[in-house]
């Protein structure tokens, strides 16, 4: 049902981009993955096009990024009529309480701390995919 819709991965670290795509592939998640290399790029991919761009089924959002960070992107997404219901999962290294609180306060749907071990990361991505791409009723 959601298979054609893409996932927007907002991540500035190239290794993390590759690892996340590797993990998605491992979990047989076939949705196209569009990558924004920082918050600025994410915002232009969501808003700055001639015709209204198709919205992703899910946004995987890193926090620590140069220029515009993940929190600012999230704020923008929630503040915009067209994107405010978009499922956003924060996918980050931090487990600091202030980051978790801030993420939820700004309207994140979920907060996942990327584990160091790749197998655990694959497991997290598998659950993410199952939940958000299979079972969850998408608002889009």
């Amino acid at each position: 049902m959601n298979k054609k819709k893409h996932i927007l991965l907002v991540e500035d670290n190239r290794d993390d981009v590759d690892l996340t795509i590797m993990a998605l592939e491992k979990c047989d998640i076939v949705n196209e993955v569009k990558v924004a290399r920082d918050g600025d790029e994410a915002l232009s991919m969501l808003y700055d096009t001639e015709e209204e761009p198709e919205l992703p089924v899910l946004v995987l959002l890193d926090i620590n990024m140069p220029k515009i960070n993940g929190f600012e992107v999230l704020k923008e997404i929630r503040g915009n009529e067209r994107t405010r219901r978009l499922p956003v999962v924060i996918l980050t290294s931090s487990r600091e309480v202030q980051d978790i609180h801030r993420g939820y306060d700004l309207g994140a749907n979920s907060y996942i701390r990327k584990p160091v071990g790749f197998e655990s990361f694959v497991e997290a991505v598998r659950n993410l995919g199952r939940y958000w791409l299979k079972w969850n009723e998408s608002p889009v």
Partner: peptide
């Protein structure tokens, strides 16, 4: 501590993930 949590973990994920690959 905050920067340790962010910055030291990311390369480790890379080392582990690409070793497995």
């Amino acid at each position: 501590a905050y920067s340790v949590s962010h910055d030291l973990r990311a390369p480790l994920r890379g080392i582990d993930g690409f070793s497995l690959a």
